[in-house]
């Protein structure tokens, strides 16, 4: 990594308030696998000299899982704390690599006094690609994209992540159920944090079978929960040798042209 990520507090103290706040999210901060996604995104931000900052240790859960599990009180406590912090730092624009954080900050914080321009990293990357700021090598992978419910149906973002994949000039293979009809990975609505109810099958297995059937060699996703569920499914199906699970920003970072020149 060419430069370290600096917290918004330090940036403001040194008189350089950032234009963009990168909201990492809990998975991006703690989850071993998703930390790699955070680092890939940071790599691109740094490479393009984008003026951004992070909340660092001051960031706290948006409250999404608490709200979906019914604990409105805890959600609002989290939300109000976060909003106070964001407003103190005069944050105007937020980018995040988590669709759950994205949905909550974008759609639910305004009712509690937090109004920001919020982008998911897929939309942000799409903009950079459109502006020609990122050049990527062709990828040989056969990629399928698993829609995140909180990006797709919840916020109607279907084309941005697909455009990111298209930039790799690889074959994007659609699964049978895609876009509006995409099948959930099974982790939304706070399911990530408990065992599933009794049933015949795990939701992620139902989904991973569809992904395997598509013939893809890489399952791309754009959500930490989806990534976990897809990776677990691949492991359970003993397909780790044949199929990789990656976030869209990892695919970009791996194939950056400028990176290869360095």
């Amino acid at each position: 990594m060419n430069s370290k990520t600096i917290s918004i507090k330090e940036l403001i103290e040194s008189g350089n308030p950032p234009e963009i706040l990168f909201w990492i999210g809990c998975a991006g901060s703690y989850d071993e696998r998703y930390k790699k996604v955070t680092k890939s995104f940071v790599q691109i931000l740094n490479e393009l000299n984008i003026n951004y900052g992070v909340l660092g240790k001051e960031e706290g859960c948006t409250g999404d899982p608490a709200r979906r599990a019914g604990n409105e009180y805890l959600f609002q406590m989290q939300a109000i704390n976060n909003i106070n912090l964001l407003n103190t730092y005069n944050v105007k624009r937020i980018v995040t690599a988590c669709p759950h954080c994205f949905n909550t900050i974008k759609n639910e914080y305004p009712a509690l006094g937090g109004e920001y321009e919020v982008q998911h990293h897929s939309e942000f990357l799409e903009e950079l690609l459109d502006e020609g700021k990122i050049q990527v090598e062709k990828s040989k992978e056969k990629i399928t994209y698993h829609d995140s419910c909180y990006l797709g149906r919840a916020n109607n973002i279907y084309s941005a992540p697909r455009k990111v994949i298209d930039s790799l000039k690889s074959d994007l293979i659609e699964m049978k159920r895609n876009k509006q009809n995409g099948l959930c990975c099974g982790a939304g609505g706070a399911q990530m944090f408990k065992e599933a109810e009794e049933g015949k099958k795990s939701i992620n297995i139902e989904r991973i079978e569809e992904a395997i059937d598509s013939g893809a060699t890489t399952i791309a996703s754009a959500c930490p929960f989806c990534l976990t569920m897809m990776s677990d499914g691949i492991k359970e199906k003993n397909q780790e040798e044949n199929i990789k699970t990656k976030d869209i920003v990892e695919l970009l970072a791996e194939n950056l042209k400028s990176k290869k020149q360095n």
Binding site: C149, R153, G188, Q191
Partner: peptide
């Protein structure tokens, strides 16, 4: 058991 995926509302 709900994953709040909005498949039903869609």
């Amino acid at each position: 058991a709900c994953t709040s995926c909005n498949a039903c509302t869609e």
